[in-house]
Design a protein around this nucleic acid. Structure first.
Lengths: 203, 203
DNA sequence: ACACATCCATACCGGTCGGTATGTAATATT
DNA sequence: AATATTACATACCGACCGGTATGGATGTGT
């Protein structure tokens, strides 16, 4: 028994809403544009989502969270060498930084900056995703410390929060500079910072 | 000969616009609200500023830039011990973080995230301020290296870019968590990172 | 005293926004 | 086969937006 009828229309709306929000921000995102992109009408949208806010929240839960989970969280969770996976994830974001992604910035961070002070519902959902991120990184550090890869004096939680902050910060700055080079330069420093938390390795 | 008649009305508009933009973002900032706060009318506003964009750009140049200059840039510029001044500036932001400032976030970063991808004029002005910041930090590192306080292997420009990124990143994350404690925890790691760039000191 | 520019208030405009009421075709239910 | 529900399309609404046109008050140069 399939518990999930795919609901193609809903998915199209979510995807188009994600793009529009990613480009314009949530408040400036135009329902009309989303409908134009999908070829649908208001009847369709308001049949699936009671309000624009509900649409935005669904984008967070069903698009943004999923993307980050695939791209980052899961890799950290599933790797037997969590610290190496973290370094690889950082290096990977670095390498794969397309000019378009750099220019538009991290969808999660964009929404957090815009909506968290304005809307409680947004804030809690966004913070939920942020905590998934922080916890994934913290867990990687904790496991790394147990494995003897991370120095014993490292405060895993504080460091994890800082790593995520710096991560988003690098993306934000590069977005404004609209420069993949700046992003790489910046993420390279974050990479070096994390390496500095590891126990000195004998080569 | 006074070159600057104070222009009280203009200043009131700028200040009210700054607050409204700080709270809502530029696009969502309502001209009507700004006028209500100041007790002025559209006639006054559009006499001093041709458009809403011009008002926003003036806020950047005449409010935000000045604030950051006083709070950070100047201190780095004028100190004979630039690295210590940087550490102190970081610790200071940390200590003085009021819940309100944490909740609203850095005005510069807010505008950068929102407007840089949308408006060229905003982008160039904002990047100008950002470069002032980065250059001030870079200069502090460079001078610190010449003074023998910073390790010789440090890439001052890359590190400066990272420091500013992480700085803004910490503010951004704390803004979403709406937690001064998280901000302090995060900035403390940044503080430690900068200290880690210094030559080992014999106590 | 007169002309003129500065500074600001009032009234108004077209456009876009999110949201709703209504209709309809297709599908599921009984 | 009749009925109810789902899944959309269409047309429309009031609110608010940034911006403008006009007019009045005040000072200023001559």
């Amino acid at each position: 028994m399939e518990s999930k009828p795919p609901d193609l229309t809903r998915d199209k709306l979510l995807q188009a809403a994600f793009c529009e929000i990613h480009r314009k921000g949530f408040q400036a995102a135009s329902i009309a544009n989303i409908l134009e992109d999908t070829g649908l009408t208001k009847g369709a949208l308001y049949h699936h989502f009671p309000t624009k806010q509900a649409l935005g929240l669904a984008v967070i839960d069903e698009v943004i969270r999923e993307q980050l989970d695939e791209l980052i969280f899961r890799r950290l969770r599933e790797s037997a060498q969590p610290v190496e996976a973290l370094l690889e994830a950082i290096a990977c974001m670095d390498r794969d930084a397309t000019p378009e992604f750099v220019q538009l910035g991290c969808p999660l961070n964009n929404l957090m900056q815009e909506m968290s002070p304005l809307d409680e519902a947004f804030k809690s959902r966004l913070n939920g995703v942020l905590m998934l991120w922080k916890n994934a990184v913290e867990d990687a550090f904790t496991r790394g410390r147990e494995l003897g890869v991370i120095r014993a004096d490292v405060d895993c939680m504080a460091v994890a929060l800082f790593v995520v902050s710096a991560w988003e910060g690098c993306g934000g700055i590069a977005k404004n500079l609209q420069s993949p080079e700046a992003y790489r330069m910046c993420m390279k420093q974050l990479h070096a910072y994390v390496r500095g938390l590891m126990v000195a390795r004998q080569t």
